[in-house]
């Protein structure tokens, strides 16, 4: 009688993709913040073409993971929310892009 086989090790790079980033809206948020350093809520909403509530939901998930930092500021009487990547978020996005490049077979 043979014993249970050990679980097969994953070798395909897709298994290394960060699931938190690899989702349509969250990927767009991370890409925008990686390129922009800081972006306001409105820029993300217009660029990603999502509703306020959906964007807020995904931003909250990224904030809870420690990837995104939100800072509220007032410009005159108008509130403005500035979003940026944390160091942890920047590193996670860099790793994510490396894995993507591996998957499509290009050196990063």
């Amino acid at each position: 009688m043979s014993g249970a086989r050990p679980p097969q090790e994953h070798t395909h790079p897709r298994h290394d993709l960060d699931d938190l980033i690899h989702a349509p809206v969250r990927l767009s948020i991370m890409a925008a913040l990686a390129a922009a350093e800081q972006a306001d809520f409105r820029f993300l909403k217009e660029t990603i073409e999502v509703s306020d509530s959906l964007l807020s939901k995904h931003l909250l998930a990224l904030e809870e993971a420690g990837y995104v930092n939100a800072a509220k500021a007032f410009e005159g009487k108008r509130p403005r929310t500035w979003l940026s990547l944390t160091d942890q978020g920047r590193e996670a996005f860099r790793r994510y892009m490396d894995v993507l490049q591996q998957i499509i077979g290009k050196p990063s």
């Binding site: 925008a32 390129a35 499509i104």
Partner: peptide, 16 residues
């Protein structure tokens, strides 16, 4: 992966 890269490039262009 291809669609993800395309989206990253699109967003980068919007930032630019």
């Amino acid at each position: 992966a291809g669609a993800a890269l395309d989206e990253v490039r699109r967003v980068e262009e919007e930032v630019r």
